[in-house]
Computed example of a mutant assay.
Amino acid sequence: MRGETATLIKIGAVYSALGEQQKALEYYNQSLPLFRAVGDRRGEGTIFIRIGQVYSELGKKQKALEYYSQSLSLLQAVGDRQGEAYTLNNIAAVYSELGEKQKALKYYTQSLPLLQELKARIYEATILTTIGLVYSELGEKQKALEYYTRSLSLSRTVRSIEQENIALNNIAAVYSELGEKQKALEYYTHSLLLSRLIMNSEQEALALFNMASVKRSLGNLTEALNDIEVSIKIIENLRTKIISQKLRTSYFATLQDYYEFYIDLLMQLHKTNPNSGYDVKASEARKRVSNF
Rank of each mutant, 00 (worst) to 15 (best):
D40V: 02
T189F: 05
R156G: 06
V230T: 06
Q30I: 05
N220M: 14
S213E: 11
S191V: 02
F292C: 07
V78H: 05
Y68R: 14
I234L: 06
I263R: 04
P274M: 10
S69R: 13
Y67A: 04
R42Q: 15
S244N: 13
I51S: 01
Y108W: 09
S56N: 15
L247W: 14
M211W: 01
L197I: 08
Y187T: 03
P33M: 10
D257T: 15
I234M: 13
A207N: 08
A282C: 03
L247H: 08
G59E: 06
P113S: 09
S195L: 04
R159G: 03
L197M: 15
A6Q: 08
I51P: 01
N275C: 00
A144V: 08
A172T: 09
G219L: 10
T240W: 11
G43F: 00
R121W: 06
D227C: 10
Q110I: 02
G179Q: 06
R288S: 14
K271T: 15
G39H: 12
R81K: 14
R286G: 08
K60I: 07
T126G: 00
L138E: 04
Q82G: 15
A77T: 15
M267Y: 09
S195F: 05
Y259S: 07
G19L: 09
S201E: 13
R50A: 14
Y251G: 13
A253C: 01
T272H: 04
E66C: 08
L193P: 00
Y188T: 04
K215R: 14
K183F: 10
L145K: 00
V94Y: 05
V14D: 08
Y188V: 10
L88E: 04
E117W: 01
L65A: 14
S153A: 11
S276F: 05
S155L: 04
M267L: 15
K143I: 08
G52A: 07
Y55G: 10
L208N: 06
R121Y: 07
L247T: 10
K141T: 02
Y147K: 02
S191H: 12
S276A: 15
A92K: 01
N29I: 03
S176N: 10
L255F: 11
A144W: 10
R2Q: 07
K23I: 02
G59F: 05
E223D: 14
I127P: 00
K119E: 12
T130Y: 00
A253T: 01
E84N: 05
L225Y: 10
L128F: 15
K183A: 07
L265M: 08
R216I: 02
A285I: 04
Y68E: 05
H190E: 15
F35G: 00
G219V: 10
